[in-house]
């Protein structure tokens, strides 16, 4: 990937952050911390890696993305909207009555959603089943699942981890958005599942630790998939909670954000300033 493409991806990620804030503008609340920490990964998946057709969301050959940590739904809504799955005006209905974009995703309400997640510890099993189903019908589509770090305390994840390795599902990649914070505090203090990569490796996964907010590293990681033939891939994405909101980064309470107008404006100004800078940078790179 050249510099221009990388800058374009970074710009897209910031535009998606702006989409998240558009949802927060509508509702004045939302799980912002995890949506922002996972933004580079989800943006790179949809705009660089995945083979998808936004106008044909049920196309059989599509790659699948599941948000196991369903509370990060704003990241997926933001990226799907940017990708053209639905009109951006839908973002203004976040938090509203009968919205298509509820707090946790619903596959029957919005195109592009693959699973009804929200209860933690479900996504990896569903993703493993998809990967197994696709492989057994010789469909080359890939499956990507994004989990939270606090979510790893759910035992069902480890059932899925064993099954995916046992069935050698190298068409499955899981990301752990390791921003290190959950509602009650530091993940390691609440319930320690580190070292995450080593745990999955012990189950038979091929693993990598990366900086999940560094778009270049994210792209290089996606280029390397599957890490090993015959093994599912696990990316421990070291990220920053509320990445891109200078006054919220690495603060546990930004897991769920209920900003007043001034804080929201400050956040929007920050993101828009980065969008402007990246647009300028892109023009310069192109020139």
């Amino acid at each position: 990937m050249n510099e221009r493409e990388l800058t374009q991806l970074r710009l897209t990620a910031e535009r998606c952050r702006r989409n998240v804030l558009r949802m927060v503008e509508a509702s004045h609340h939302g799980h912002l911390g995890g949506a922002f920490s996972a933004m580079e990964i989800v943006t790179a998946l949809y705009f660089y890696k995945m083979n998808v057709r936004p106008g044909e969301p049920k196309w059989e050959g599509r790659d699948r993305f599941l948000l196991s940590a369903g509370h990060k739904s704003m990241v997926q809504y933001a990226v799907l909207a940017e990708k053209g799955y639905f009109d951006k005006s839908v973002l203004d209905t976040y938090g509203g009555f009968k919205t298509k974009i509820p707090g946790h995703p619903d596959m029957y309400k919005l195109p592009g959603i693959e699973a009804n997640t929200g209860a933690l510890g479900h996504g990896l099993s569903i993703a493993a089943g998809m990967a197994l189903g696709l492989r057994s019908q010789k469909n080359d589509a890939k499956v990507y699942a994004l989990m939270g770090d606090g979510e790893l305390a759910e035992g069902s994840n480890w059932e899925a981890a064993a099954a995916a390795a046992h069935y050698r599902l190298d068409n499955l990649t899981a990301f752990v958005d390791f921003n290190g914070l959950q509602i009650s505090g530091r993940v390691q203090d609440v319930m320690n599942y580190t070292p995450i990569a080593e745990h999955f490796a012990a189950f038979g996964w091929a693993v990598r630790d990366i900086d999940g907010n560094d778009m270049k590293q994210v792209v290089e990681t996606l280029d390397a998939l599957p890490f090993e033939k015959g093994k599912p891939s696990l990316v421990v994405a070291h990220t920053v909670k509320a990445k891109g909101l200078s006054f919220g980064e690495n603060i546990a309470s930004f897991h769920y954000w209920e900003p007043d107008d001034a804080a929201l404006k400050k956040g929007i100004d920050e993101v828009e300033a980065r969008i402007e800078a990246l647009e300028k940078e892109l023009e310069e790179v192109q020139a």
Partner: peptide
Amino acid sequence: QGVTGIAAGMATT
């Protein structure tokens, strides 16, 4: 638990 989720995933295909 895992098998029930896996069943759901397989059914989607």
